[in-house]
Amino acid sequence: MKKKSHSILRDSQPPQFNMTPMIDVVFLLIIFFMLICQFIVQENYKLEIPDDCAHAIVPDHPDEGAITVSVYPKPVQDDETAQNEVLFAVRSYRFDPADPRYRHDGDLLIADMSRQITEQAQRKSDPLINLRADKDMTYGNVQKALLALARSKITRVQLAAYRSEQMDK
């Protein structure tokens, strides 16, 4: 009889708030969103834009819908010796001139970029393009991006540049 009353007492303890499964779920959600949102990170290509441009305007409220077109050097892998190679990107869509499709037909690269820009621009009434090109890129390379923009009938373009000299190179 004594034993039974002890068991009732133990069972009548108030419930506790168990945090462990909640943390597990939160972790899973974080991992899920990190994987889903990777395309935003992919737009942030590693490139050094020109600096020391005192007349560059730093917008108070950046246009979130602006389409970023990037021209940047191809990251050199350990097993690669090729240098001065270039990559293009319209938002997160990358275009590699070394691709066999483009190697023999440079115009196809511009046409494909232009098609992608047009597709992105159709979602906006007055599309704005942020042209982010590495400062060491040649004009011949950046010109391909300019040509693709012109073919897409884009007129509003912003050239990315730092106002002052970049010290953290």
């Binding site: 942030n44 834009i49 441009c53 007349h55 560059a56 305007i57 730093v58 917008p59 942020n130 042209l131 982010r132 300019l146 923009l149 012109a150 073919r151 897409s152 009938k153 884009i154 007129t155 509003r156 373009v157 912003q158 050239l159 990315a160 540049a161 730092y162 106002r163 970049q166 953290d168």
Partner: peptide, 14 residues
């Protein structure tokens, strides 16, 4: 990424 500035440009119509 440091805050970037922009130099506005206008491309001619194709």
């Amino acid at each position: 990424r440091s805050q970037e500035g922009f130099l506005p440009a206008e491309l001619p119509q194709y």
